[in-house]
């Protein structure tokens, strides 16, 4: 991958660029795919898949995010440490969300729905 991109940069008459130059057609392809996936997720939301709707929507969103990260944000070409930093952050979010969810689900039945004395009448 590095080689081809290098070649392209060289072809453009530049060899001294800092960082990796992503080939134009890769960027265009990613852009197109992102738009297509947006369409897909809207369409999928129109189909009743029961409890799978959320999963499908998240799967598509994750695919889109991955494309942005790898190509627009250059992770595909950068040092692994940057991806490690990012994934670590995601893991901590996952930890936080999952434990808070686990706990609040366990006591949720003790809350009174609609008990809102501060709501405007």
């Amino acid at each position: 991958m590095r080689e081809t991109a290098h070649a392209e940069a060289a072809a453009a008459g530049q060899t001294a660029a800092v960082g990796h130059v992503v080939p134009l057609r890769v960027l265009v392809a990613v852009w197109g795919t992102l738009l297509a996936l947006t369409g897909l997720t809207v369409a999928a939301a129109g189909v009743d898949l029961g409890s799978y709707n959320l999963g499908v929507a998240m799967l598509i969103a994750t695919a889109k995010a991955t494309l942005v990260l790898l190509f627009f944000m250059h992770l595909r070409y950068d040092r692994p440490i940057l991806a490690i930093v990012f994934v670590t952050a995601l893991l901590f979010v996952a930890l936080f969300v999952s434990i808070a969810l686990l706990d609040s689900n366990a006591y949720a039945h003790q809350l009174i729905p609609g008990y809102g004395p501060a709501l405007p009448k």
């Binding site: 940069a9 530049q14 660029a17 130059v21 992503v22 960027l27 992102l34 942005v68 190509f71 627009f72």
Partner: peptide
């Protein structure tokens, strides 16, 4: 995002 990615590319070139 796409135009931004292109902008970085333009800067590199």
């Amino acid at each position: 995002s796409f135009t931004m990615a292109l902008a970085v590319r333009a800067a590199q070139l």
